[in-house]
Simulated assay, not measured.
Amino acid sequence: MKNYRLLSLAAAATLALASCSKNADNASASAAKLEVRLTDAPGNFNAVVLDVQQIEVHDKDENDPSGWQTLVFTPQAVNVLDYVNGKSALLVNTDFAPGDLKEIRLILGPNSYVVGTDGQQYALKTPSGQTSGVKLKLDKVTLAAGSTYQLLLDFDVAKSIVERGNWKAGNDKKERYLLKPVIRLVAQDLRGGLRGTVNPAVARPQVLAIRAAITGPDTVSTFADASGAYQLNGLAAGTYQVQFFPSVAAPTGQPAYKSVVRPGITVTNNQVTDLGVTPLN
């Protein structure tokens, strides 16, 4: 991997400065820009913090270990629940040599944790088989000179955090949850989206957008927030069935919340389709 950066020599002569500036401009023009962002499909937790230590990409054949390149990244703890409904955390923004990318890998540290709805903090243990990192394959990702390419990592909290079946209150908090990351990888050229609101907002439904594809149904999900709003980004163009499943029951004496299916929803690249208000009772 090559990082192309502007050169600055404070003590150099004017001619040397001009030469450096010209070389840097040429290098920048011949480089590609790579962004890596993280977003989330929320789950039933108050916080989900990932200890992200390193991010790498692979630009050679799968079995060639020399192809792994470390990206410019500052290790950090990221609460993925801060990045829902269209928000995303910018993890990497760097110049990169043009060419094909095959895989991306996240190296997670030992300090990931969740805060449950009970307000208690629980460690997230990563199975030993994933200590080498979470690998995601890239499909036909080619970085071109002078262009920006964004990789969106869509972390699914509900599927990624697994509670041990034999855990009981009072047991060691470090033993309650396992982290088995389920991450959907979306390339930047998929820029379609869906948004809308539900009524009543207190139903807090899970929202699924399902598109038929050659490789099987492509399903993306999120939850409506406390105001009833939801947004799904990084969708391929096509026709979707959007499903709403209330996550809570209606109070006694009020009409029951209903599951709703809205078929035939069209998603177009570079546009966010607004579904308006979806009633759930």
Rank of each mutant, 00 (worst) to 15 (best):
Q188G: 15
V134Q: 13
L106E: 04
G146L: 15
D25M: 14
G86Q: 04
A13E: 13
A89H: 10
S132P: 08
E163L: 02
Y149S: 09
A89F: 13
K125H: 07
L17Y: 05
V207G: 04
L15M: 01
V80Q: 04
A16Q: 13
T219N: 09
F244P: 06
L71E: 11
K173C: 01
Q241H: 02
D82M: 06
R191V: 05
P246L: 10
F96K: 10
G116T: 14
A158M: 08
A203Q: 14
S221H: 02
F73V: 06
L6A: 15
A47R: 12
H58W: 04
A224M: 14
K258C: 02
V260T: 05
Q271K: 14
A209T: 03
Q254C: 00
V198H: 07
P279Q: 10
K87W: 04
L15F: 01
D218M: 03
L15E: 07
D156T: 00
L151A: 01
Y122L: 11
L6N: 15
T273R: 09
E35V: 12
Q188H: 10
V267R: 02
A77L: 14
L208V: 04
P98I: 03
L17P: 01
K180V: 05
L50S: 05
Q69N: 03
P246E: 04
V261F: 01
N44D: 15
V202D: 06
K33D: 08
P42S: 00
N85F: 00
K137S: 11
D82H: 12
D118R: 06
T117F: 06
S160E: 09
V248H: 03
L190V: 01
V92D: 07
G146S: 12
A24F: 03
D59H: 10
P110T: 08
A213L: 10
S66N: 09
R176G: 01
N23W: 09
V78T: 07
V207C: 02
A209P: 02
L71P: 09
G234A: 06
D274H: 04
F73W: 03
G119A: 12
G133E: 09
L34H: 14
M1L: 11
K2S: 15
G196Q: 05
G67L: 06
A237F: 13
Y83K: 00
V277T: 14
S112C: 10
R211S: 03
D118N: 13
L81K: 04
S21R: 15
S30N: 13
I183M: 09
V186C: 04
Q53D: 01
F245N: 09
S132A: 15
S28C: 12
E103G: 02
P255Y: 07
V186Q: 10
A158Q: 11
V57M: 03
Y4D: 11
I214W: 03
R184N: 10
